Simulated scan of single mutants.
Amino acid sequence: KGTDSEEGQTTVTEHRTMGQAGTSVPYDTVYGQYRNEAMETLENSSVPYGMRELVSDYFATLER
Results as ranks from 00 to 15, higher is better:
residue 44 N to S: 10
residue 49 Y to E: 15
residue 43 E to D: 15
residue 18 M to Q: 11
residue 45 S to V: 01
residue 11 T to R: 07
residue 33 Q to A: 14
residue 2 G to V: 04
residue 17 T to C: 01
residue 61 T to W: 06
residue 33 Q to G: 11
residue 2 G to P: 13
residue 35 R to H: 06
residue 23 T to S: 14
residue 1 K to C: 08
residue 55 V to P: 06
residue 47 V to T: 07
residue 64 R to I: 07
residue 42 L to H: 06
residue 28 D to F: 06
residue 40 E to C: 00
residue 58 Y to C: 02
residue 56 S to F: 08
residue 30 V to C: 02
residue 13 T to W: 11
residue 20 Q to C: 01
residue 56 S to Q: 14
residue 47 V to E: 04
residue 10 T to Q: 08
residue 42 L to W: 03
residue 64 R to S: 15
residue 3 T to D: 06
residue 15 H to D: 12
residue 48 P to E: 13
residue 25 V to A: 05
residue 51 M to R: 06
residue 11 T to K: 04
residue 22 G to M: 05
residue 56 S to P: 03
residue 23 T to P: 01
residue 9 Q to W: 05
residue 10 T to Y: 04
residue 2 G to K: 01
residue 27 Y to K: 08
residue 43 E to C: 04
residue 52 R to E: 14
residue 46 S to T: 09
residue 44 N to Y: 02
residue 8 G to P: 05
residue 10 T to G: 02
residue 2 G to N: 01
residue 42 L to F: 07
residue 60 A to L: 15
residue 17 T to F: 03
residue 15 H to F: 15
residue 8 G to R: 00
residue 1 K to V: 08
residue 63 E to G: 05
residue 54 L to V: 12
residue 46 S to N: 12
residue 41 T to N: 07
residue 54 L to C: 07
residue 32 G to H: 13
residue 29 T to E: 15
residue 59 F to V: 10
residue 5 S to D: 11
residue 47 V to Q: 00
residue 15 H to Q: 12
residue 52 R to D: 10
residue 48 P to D: 13
residue 14 E to F: 03
residue 16 R to E: 14
residue 30 V to M: 09
residue 58 Y to W: 11
residue 41 T to F: 12
residue 6 E to F: 08
residue 29 T to L: 09
residue 59 F to G: 08
residue 29 T to H: 12
residue 38 A to P: 07
residue 55 V to I: 15
residue 64 R to C: 05
residue 60 A to G: 12
residue 47 V to K: 01
residue 39 M to Y: 15
residue 54 L to F: 10
residue 38 A to M: 09
residue 62 L to P: 00
residue 38 A to F: 02
residue 52 R to Q: 14
residue 48 P to C: 05
residue 61 T to V: 06
residue 41 T to H: 12
residue 31 Y to F: 15
residue 44 N to G: 08
residue 57 D to Q: 11
residue 18 M to I: 02
residue 49 Y to L: 13
residue 5 S to H: 10
residue 28 D to Q: 09
residue 2 G to Y: 00
residue 57 D to G: 04
residue 30 V to E: 04
residue 55 V to D: 04
residue 60 A to C: 04
residue 59 F to H: 01
residue 63 E to C: 03
